[in-house]
Design a protein around this nucleic acid. Structure first.
Lengths: 149, 149
DNA sequence: TGCATAAAGTGCGATATCGCACTAAATAGT
DNA sequence: ACTATTTAGTGCGATATCGCACTTTATGCA
């Protein structure tokens, strides 16, 4: 019974959409007033991948329009969690550096999320998720390339 | 090498978030001006699950605040794709019915998405996705129950 | 029955998101 | 070297999203 394949895609994207929504809400419930998931995501990225990248690089990494990244970075800079310096290699451009306060914030945020993760882990062991990661990455890349094409 | 389990959750939610974002953009690129994914999703739901439900029921089905659903339904009603009638069982409430125009719109939308799905299916066969569906549903339900608790 | 509480829907305000178009700077092609 | 084109970032405007508070109706409880 080869079910209507279209249905499978719709179901998949529907589930993914709701999970994204709910997990984001869960994250943001732990954040201090005005701090949103994108703020945290950028800080996390700066630490994991390294800082000094340009806003455009970050926008591409997160697959958001550059105007959205500008907005997110402005919020982080206002709170002194990042610092924006002119790019010595390109005067049109900037470099984004995380500050000490930014590192502290990121660490605290992760710590504050621990209870949620732990609770989730009980119902949904990490190994279970890990198995899905390669497929999800593949799908993300497919959509990504499709978009650019 | 039992990697930091927290990392796994972060990666998972990160991938899911980007997929949700990109797939939504792909969908909306096919929609006529002003029609968004939530509009389509509601129409699709009304057909698949059946219409006559209240706005609150729909809000819960999609895990969005009821104000968001009010907004989405208003858009659909303005375009005469749904009809809102008073709920005979409860004067506070309403019932949402899909119109003929709504059915036509939904069918056309699906048809217009076919090329995208087909393209995706080449890089990412439906069977591959189908395998993930049970896990995704389980995660969605976990988050859902967690939220209500 | 009468009153307190809860629930359904919406108006309003705040803000995140994002497309468009602009400026300034780099790059390509002659 | 000069001009045309491309690129990085952002201001602006439109709108989706969502929290809060309010109205109206239902429900629970004495």
């Amino acid at each position: 019974m080869p079910e209507d394949p279209t249905r499978v895609y719709f179901s998949f994207f529907n589930e993914v959409g709701i999970i994204a929504q709910l997990s984001r809400a869960m994250f943001e419930a732990r954040m201090p007033e005005g701090m949103l998931l994108p703020h945290f995501s950028v800080l996390n990225h700066l630490i994991r991948v390294g800082d000094g990248a340009t806003p455009l690089k970050l926008a591409r990494a997160f697959q958001v329009p550059k105007t959205s990244m500008t907005h997110t970075l402005a919020g982080l800079e206002d709170r002194a969690l990042i610092r924006m310096a002119p790019n010595p290699k390109d005067a049109r451009s900037k470099c984004v550096w995380i500050t000490d306060a930014g590192r502290v914030f990121r660490d605290k945020a992760i710590a504050s999320l621990a209870p949620d993760i732990e609770r989730l882990a009980k119902a949904f062991p990490a190994g279970n998720l890990e198995a899905m990661l390669p497929s999800l990455e593949a799908m993300r890349k497919t959509l990504d390339e499709d978009r650019s094409a």
